[in-house]
Design a protein around this nucleic acid. Structure first.
Length: 439
RNA sequence: GGGGGCGUGGUGUAGUGGUUUAACAUGCGGCCCUGUCAAGGCCGAGAUCGCGGGUUCAAAUCCCGUCGCUCCCGCCA
C-alpha cells in the first residue's frame, strides 16, 4: 500500500490507508487507545478499541514517545475529534524503530533548552514543526531565486572550494595540508564568478558554501555558511546590481508568503511583509549625517564605516521615515572595501559599492567590480597585496572583460531576517562555529 | 582576541548564608480513567546545586581560580 501524507487524509475518508511517522502521544486508556501520529505534513489521531484487537492493543501499549511507526487503518470522519475532525481506526501497526526513553529533551514541551543543547540533539530539535518550517521556507526561497535568475538569463556555476590563494583579503583563512603543500578553503566565490564574466557567461549565480576562520562568537556568524552569489555583465553601475537584487528579493518574499505565509504566522508568529521596491538608498556620507542628527556616536576608529550599532540605528531611522525594513548603504570609502571594488571616476576615494541592511542586519555586500586590469593592479598594490598570488586573477581581465558587478548574500542571514529569528543558528541545519564541529 | 551575563534532577526554572530531608513545571516509570483531545487523576524514581580551592560554627547561596555556554564588540555574509 502506498503511503498517504497526513495532510492528505481528508481526501481518503472511508478508505484504508498507510500512514508513517513518529508517535507523538499515546493515550492508553482502559478500553481505548489513542495515538497522535506526526509526519512532516501534520498530525492525526489514530484510535483503537482494545477489545476489538487485544494482541494489537498490547503491542501499542509498549510503544514509546517518538517511535517511528507504520500504521494502516480506515480514515473516518468524526466531528468530536478536535484534531481536524478525522481519525484513523487502527488496523495494523509496525514498529520501525522503537525510541529509547527518555529523550534528551521533549521537543513538544512549552519551554526549550538552550540553543547549544538543542544543537547537540539537533535531529530531535528539527522534529518540531516550527523548526522544519524554516527549512521548507529555505527550499522555497532557493527555488524562487533560481527561478528568477533563470528567467533573467543566468547560468548556474559551481566554483571550487579548495584554493591555492586567498579569495579576499582581511577575512581569516582555513589552511589545510594538500599533498605536501597548502590549500585554503574558499572564503567566497568572488574570483571565480568574475572569471565567468571574463568567460563571457554574461550572468551567473552560485549557492554554495563559504568558509571563514573568524573566531566570532555572535548570533550572526558561522565559520561555514551558505553564500548566495551572483555576478552580472554589461552593467553601467552598482545601481543596476541593487535594482536586480531588490526585485529578486521581492520575488522570493512573495513566493514564500504565497506558499508559507499562514504557517509562518501560525508557527513562528511572524507576519511576513513583502518589501516594496525600490528599497531606500543611503550614501554612506548621508548615513553619517543621520547618525549625527540622532546623536549616535560611532567609535572613533570607524571613520567612513558603520558599526553594527550604527547599522541598527540607521535601519531604525529608515523604518520610521520610510516604513521600510531594507536599506542600501552605498558609496563606501575605499579604506573599508577590497581592492576589486570600482571607484567613482570623479571621487577616487569612494567605491561604487553597497551593503544591504535588513532589519538592522548586514546581509549583503556588493559592488561594481574594477574590470580595467591596470587600475585593478594599481588598487591591489595600494592595498598592500603582492601580485604574484593573484596573478591568475589579474589575468582574467587582460584579454577582454565586460564591465560587471555582483554581490554575496548570506542565506541563513536572509532567513533569519525573513522569519524574524534571533539567532542564525536557528536558520542552518547544522551550525559550524569556533567551538562547534559536531554533530 | 577583549568585555558582560549564566551554569541547580533528562529538560526548563525557583531558591542568593541557617528546619533545604533542595522546591515547581515538564518529561520518565507504575496504577486508575465510557472516546480521549495534542487529556485528566493518584503514586514513584530521578540533583552530592559545572569543577577545584578558600572564608565561615554553617555555603547551591560569599570570595578566588578554572572550565563550559551565551550575548556584545572587533570582523563580516
Amino acid at each position: 500500500m502506498e503511503r498517504t501524507p497526513i495532510s492528505a487524509l481528508k481526501g481518503h475518508i472511508g478508505q484504508t490507508v498507510k500512514v508513517q511517522g513518529f508517535l507523538q502521544t499515546l493515550r492508553d486508556q482502559k478500553k481505548m487507545q489513542f495515538i497522535v501520529l506526526r509526519d512532516l505534513t501534520g498530525l492525526v489521531q489514530v484510535a483503537l478499541w482494545k477489545e476489538g484487537n487485544p494482541t494489537l492493543a498490547e503491542e501499542i501499549s509498549r510503544l514509546t514517545t517518538e517511535t517511528a511507526l507504520t500504521i494502516t487503518g480506515k480514515v473516518v470522519e468524526n466531528p468530536v475529534v478536535k484534531l481536524g475532525g478525522i481519525e484513523i481506526q487502527l488496523e495494523t501497526a509496525e514498529t520501525d524503530s522503537l525510541a529509547a526513553q527518555q529523550l534528551p529533551f521533549d521537543p513538544f514541551a512549552d519551554t526549550m533548552p538552550a540553543i547549544d543543547f538543542r544543537m547537540d540533539w539537533r535531529f530531535i530539535d528539527l522534529r518540531r514543526p516550527e523548526i522544519a518550517l524554516i527549512f521548507k521556507v529555505q527550499t522555497t526561497t532557493e527555488m524562487a531565486l533560481r527561478e528568477y535568475w533563470i528567467q533573467n538569463g543566468f547560468l548556474e556555476i559551481h566554483t571550487p572550494k579548495l584554493m591555492g590563494s586567498p579569495s579576499e583579503s582581511g577575512a581569516e583563512l582555513f589552511e589545510l595540508p594538500y599533498f605536501g603543500g597548502k590549500a585554503y578553503l574558499a572564503q567566497s566565490p568572488q574570483f571565480y564568478k568574475q572569471m565567468a564574466m571574463a568567460a563571457g557567461f554574461d550572468r551567473v549565480f552560485e549557492i554554495g558554501p563559504a568558509f571563514r576562520a573568524d573566531p566570532s562568537f555572535t548570533s550572526r556568524h558561522m565559520t561555514e555558511f551558505t553564500s548566495i552569489d551572483m555576478e552580472m555583465s554589461w552593467i553601467e553601475s552598482h545601481d543596476d546590481v541593487m535594482r536586480f537584487l531588490e526585485n529578486m528579493l521581492q520575488y522570493a518574499y512573495q513566493k514564500v508568503k504565497d506558499i508559507h505565509g499562514e504557517e509562518i504566522k501560525a508557527l513562528l508568529g511572524t507576519d511576513l511583509q513583502v518589501p516594496t521596491v525600490p528599497f531606500p538608498r543611503l550614501p554612506m556620507a548621508e548615513a553619517h549625517k543621520i547618525l549625527k542628527e540622532i546623536n549616535y556616536v560611532l567609535p572613533p576608529d570607524k571613520k567612513g564605516d558603520l558599526d553594527p550599532g550604527g547599522e541598527r540605528a540607521v535601519a531604525q531611522w529608515v523604518k520610521e521615515k520610510y516604513n521600510h525594513d531594507f536599506v542600501f548603504i552605498t558609496d563606501w570609502p575605499i579604506e573599508v572595501r577590497p581592492f576589486y571594488h570600482m571607484r567613482y571616476a570623479d571621487q577616487p576615494n569612494i567605491t561604487k559599492s553597497f551593503d544591504l541592511i535588513a532589519s538592522g542586519l548586514e546581509i549583503t555586500t556588493g559592488a561594481q567590480r574594477e574590470h580595467r586590469v591596470d587600475i585593478l593592479a594599481k588598487q591591489a598594490t595600494e592595498k598592500g597585496l603582492t601580485h604574484d598570488p593573484i596573478r591568475f586573477y589579474l589575468d582574467f581581465f587582460r584579454y577582454g572583460c565586460p564591465p560587471h558587478g555582483g554581490f554575496g548574500l548570506g542565506l541563513s542571514r536572509l532567513l533569519m531576517v525573513m522569519l524574524n529569528l534571533n539567532n542564525v543558528r536557528e536558520a542552518v541545519l547544522l551550525f559550524r562555529g569556533p567551538n562547534r564541529l559536531n554533530p
